[in-house]
């Protein structure tokens, strides 16, 4: 990773300073200053208060991402390959896109209970669509000439899929994964808002009930850090796998 340029650090310090100043003139309940928040964060981490919640939310995000992403990817491949199924299912996919999926969270709590399952299901549902869409597009629009090349070489449909369409579609598919990662955290947190007492989303709700605004901010920082780490992981994956594609694009 490149080192942050000086002015970027400077801007950050100025923002912190302005924040601290404005926080002093306000009640801690409305806007706690960065020092207070930082102390709450540190205390929470040291005392182990955050640990189970972090683990819980991370687990939900990863499981949801895995199942939703995998399912979206496989459905995308099937729909990209089989025109009949694509035509049959696409209206439903578009319709379900229009459903505000987060609004379904209470329903899933009802169906799957207050435990982890309901949150994983919500997260998976949210991760499903970006991967589905990107995979369908990637499979459907594989370069025609490359397909002709494979036909010329007598490759079976299966081989064309495995050796051509999927690797050729990787940049698009990974772009879908990047979108899914960000959405996954939103999904898990919303699920935790609605029901249950574990996870960082539940901590936010609890802090609201206790009017503990610094705790709320501290949790937000944790969530942000989590999002950035996951995003970074996908970026690294992308770099490792797709270095050849990127080079071509940069040209």
């Amino acid at each position: 990773m490149k080192r942050f340029p000086l002015y970027s650090v400077l801007l950050f310090l100025i923002l912190l300073f302005v924040w601290e100043i404005s926080a002093r003139s306000m009640s801690e309940l409305v806007l706690p200053g960065p020092f207070v928040i930082f102390r709450t964060l540190l205390d929470g981490i040291k005392s182990g208060y955050f640990t189970p919640h972090i683990i819980r939310t991370t687990l939900e995000v990863i499981l949801g991402l895995f199942f939703g992403g995998l399912f979206g990817f496989m459905t995308g491949i099937i729909m990209g390959e089989i025109v009949f199924l694509r035509k049959l299912l696409f209206p439903y996919i578009i319709a379900s896109q229009a459903v505000p999926k987060l609004a379904l969270a209470p329903l899933f709590i009802l169906w799957f209970g207050f435990g982890m399952t309901s949150k994983v299901v919500i997260t998976a549902l949210i991760c499903f669509f970006p991967l589905l869409e990107n995979t369908v597009t990637a499979i459907k629009y594989t370069d025609k000439q490359k397909q002709e090349l494979f036909r010329m070489l007598g490759a079976s449909r299966w081989k064309i899929l495995i050796q051509l369409k999927i690797p050729a579609g990787m940049p698009g598919i990974i772009a879908g994964l990047r979108v899914a990662v960000v959405l996954a955290i939103v999904g898990a947190v919303i699920g935790e808002f609605v029901g249950g007492s574990d996870g960082l989303g539940a901590v936010i709700i609890a802090s609201q009930g206790m009017m503990d605004t610094p705790l709320m901010f501290a949790t937000l920082i944790l969530l942000t850090a989590m999002g950035m780490i996951l995003y970074r992981v996908v970026q690294l994956l992308e770099k490792k796998w797709l270095i050849r594609f990127m080079k071509e694009k940069e040209k």
């Binding site: 090349l149 050729a168 594609f245 071509e248």
Partner: peptide
Amino acid sequence: KPSPEAGFVFQSPTLLEW
């Protein structure tokens, strides 16, 4: 259908980038 006896060079190189 395409015969395994035949080789084809396309108008553009059509290489696999990966």
